[in-house]
Simulated assay, not measured.
Amino acid sequence: MEDQQSKEVQAVYKQLIEAWNNQNARGMADLFAENGESIGFDGSQSIGREEIFSHLDPIFEHHQTAQFVSKVKNVHLLSSNVVMIRAIAGMIPPQSSDLNPNVNTHHTLILVKKAGKWYIQLFQNTPAQFHGRPELVERMTEELRQLLT
């Protein structure tokens, strides 16, 4: 993948994380394609910018959400206008300075380029619980903790 394209799509992912961390539902929703889809940590599915906004806005309005810490693991060009990003993420709960390993997650995004701009077509937030393999949870948590220092 060309470095410029990789930088562009990683910037969109960074904007998504920053919008979450700033509790900006409109900022998050506007990063999605018009018919984009978000699948949340709990399996909630929202399709379309307005539905994504309508799902996120009350969460941010009524809850102090944890802050994401994330790391892009790879970027794959699937076609000239379609890219997949895989990342790992952890969350720092409110009033804490450390990650909660129980909510580590894998982020998978498919981005599409329309009219020269990248949009998120799919964002999936999958729990990384590694059932029966606590060493993998700890390894991921330590990898993310490196980003805190």
Rank of each mutant, 00 (worst) to 15 (best):
I17Y: 01
W118R: 09
T126A: 15
D98K: 10
N125D: 15
V75F: 04
D30C: 01
G90Y: 05
I52R: 06
E61G: 04
S96A: 03
H63G: 06
M28H: 06
N35Y: 11
P101M: 12
H106Y: 14
K114C: 05
Q15L: 09
I39T: 08
L109N: 12
S97W: 05
V75T: 14
N35V: 09
E50S: 12
D42F: 03
Q95I: 05
G27Y: 11
I47T: 12
Q67V: 02
A66D: 03
L16V: 02
K73M: 13
L31F: 10
V83E: 07
G36N: 04
F53M: 03
R49I: 05
S46C: 04
M28A: 14
H76L: 14
N104R: 12
N22R: 02
A25M: 04
V12G: 09
H55M: 14
V82E: 14
Q124N: 13
L77G: 07
N74D: 15
Q45L: 14
G27F: 10
L31C: 04
E61W: 00
I59D: 07
G27T: 01
I110Q: 11
F68E: 01
T105S: 14
N104W: 08
Q15E: 12
F32R: 10
V12A: 01
G116A: 03
G36V: 07
S46V: 04
S70K: 04
M91E: 04
R49E: 02
I85Q: 04
P101K: 08
T126V: 13
N100F: 06
Q64H: 05
E51Q: 13
S97E: 07
T108K: 06
S80W: 09
E18G: 00
W118C: 04
H55P: 05
P94K: 01
Q23K: 10
G36M: 09
Y13N: 13
G36D: 09
V69Y: 00
V82M: 12
G40M: 10
I110A: 05
A29L: 09
K73V: 14
V82F: 09
G36R: 05
I120T: 02
S54K: 15
L99H: 01
K14A: 15
E18H: 06
N125F: 06
H62P: 00
N81E: 14
P93M: 03
D42S: 13
I39V: 15
L56S: 08
Q45Y: 08
A33Y: 11
I92D: 03
G43M: 07
A19E: 05
H76T: 15
I110F: 12
E61R: 13
I52Y: 11
S80E: 15
G48D: 04
P101I: 03
N74G: 10
S38I: 02
